[in-house]
């Protein structure tokens, strides 16, 4: 293994600086190294400026992070194009400049070895498949932004990408801009919104409704957008499965209903009612107050992570349109 990623057993011996919102990484002030926490709480030290110029990334969110700091040109391996929105990368995949190294669950280990990458971006899910590359001395950087529980914490992972590619200052300034815009809107909503309408989210599937936890990043968006989340009383950071009737009872009275629903055809109220006739009983359905994100139409799952300020503005525009009347929705819009 090369000197850039050593497992360290000590957890709290470092001066934690540099991460304002994120809890899954921090900078060690003495060495300047970035410290990544894995799901078990162990830290891995990552020296800055070690990623090199031949990058393989295994998630489309990594493409968004790298594109934001101007490193897209160094991506030589990417996951299957069906899940990629970024037109530059799509063009590079078509021209063969960037290879598809993973499709769905299947990882093309041989192709990655042949590409001889200078670094691989992945997450701990694939840790067992990474031993082969780590044994070759290829730095494997575990990006776990999805384990952060607030929108800004997820976006802050841009600093990890900035650090390893040697573009720390650029990443810092991009994050500062995102943070400033997000917080400015959040504070303005807190001051100016006259009331806090109620909201819930998700859809039923086979009798089960996965509801965002009360301490999840989605609940953070609800809070910051000036709404009252009706399932905020639990402390879960991930989604929790609930019985349809439990959601039905509480969701019925809600002013707004947020759904993320991938569909290649146009989503309509009729379509929703077709899935479950009880949807039509919801207040938000009757009042045409469904807030829809269609990931087949926007790069929600790719770029959404570094644009929390835009997602927040979308939600605010849907719920309190009078506060930002000029806003043009990108990810979420009220379904007509």
């Amino acid at each position: 293994m090369s000197g850039c990623a050593q497992k360290s057993p000590e957890k709290k011996a470092f001066e934690k600086v540099g991460a304002k919102y994120a809890e899954q990484f921090f900078f060690d002030e003495a060495s300047g190294d970035i410290m990544l926490l894995d799901p078990t709480g162990n830290t891995t030290a990552l020296r800055c400026d070690t990623a090199g110029e031949r990058l393989v990334c295994l998630s489309s969110t990594h493409i968004a992070f790298l594109t934001a700091i101007g490193e897209a040109g160094h991506i030589i391996g990417a996951p299957d194009s069906a899940y990629i929105f970024d037109s530059d990368i799509k063009a590079k995949i078509r021209s063969g400049e960037t290879a598809i190294v993973a499709s769905g669950a299947a990882l093309n280990e041989e192709l990655i070895l042949e590409l001889a990458p200078s670094a691989i971006f992945t997450d701990n899910m694939r840790a067992s498949e990474m031993t082969l590359f780590e044994a070759q001395g290829i730095p494997v950087i575990y990006i776990e932004e999805f384990r952060e529980n607030s929108p800004l914490a997820r976006a802050e992972w841009i600093k990890v990408f900035g650090c390893v590619t040697g573009k720390q200052h650029l990443a810092d300034s991009i994050f500062s801009t995102i943070e400033a815009e997000y917080n400015e809107l959040k504070n303005s909503v807190a001051e100016n919104a006259k009331l806090r309408p109620t909201i819930f989210g998700g859809t039923e599937y086979q009798g089960v409704w996965y509801v965002s936890g009360g301490a999840s990043y989605i609940a953070g968006f609800y809070q910051d957008a000036g709404t009252e989340y009706v399932f905020a009383d639990n402390k879960h950071t991930s989604s929790i499965p609930m019985d349809f009737e439990a959601v039905y009872e509480k969701g019925m009275e809600c002013d707004f209903w947020r759904i993320v629903f991938a569909s290649s055809s146009k989503v309509s109220y009729n379509m929703l009612e077709g899935f479950n006739a009880h949807y039509a009983d919801f207040n938000a359905f009757k009042n045409k107050s469904v807030i829809l994100c269609n990931p087949a139409e926007s790069a929600y799952f790719e770029k959404g992570v570094i644009e929390p300020h835009i997602i927040l503005a979308d939600l605010v525009y849907a719920v309190h349109p009078e506060l930002i009347p000029e806003h043009k929705p990108v990810y979420y819009r009220i379904l007509n």
Binding site: A105, E109, D123, M125, S128, T131, L132, A135
Partner: peptide, 19 residues
């Protein structure tokens, strides 16, 4: 994410033993 890790294991693979 956790589900996917579990499913990956369940698909079976001869590649994870390594040297």
């Amino acid at each position: 994410h956790d589900l996917q890790a579990y499913i990956l294991w369940g698909l079976g693979s001869f590649s994870k033993v390594g040297w």
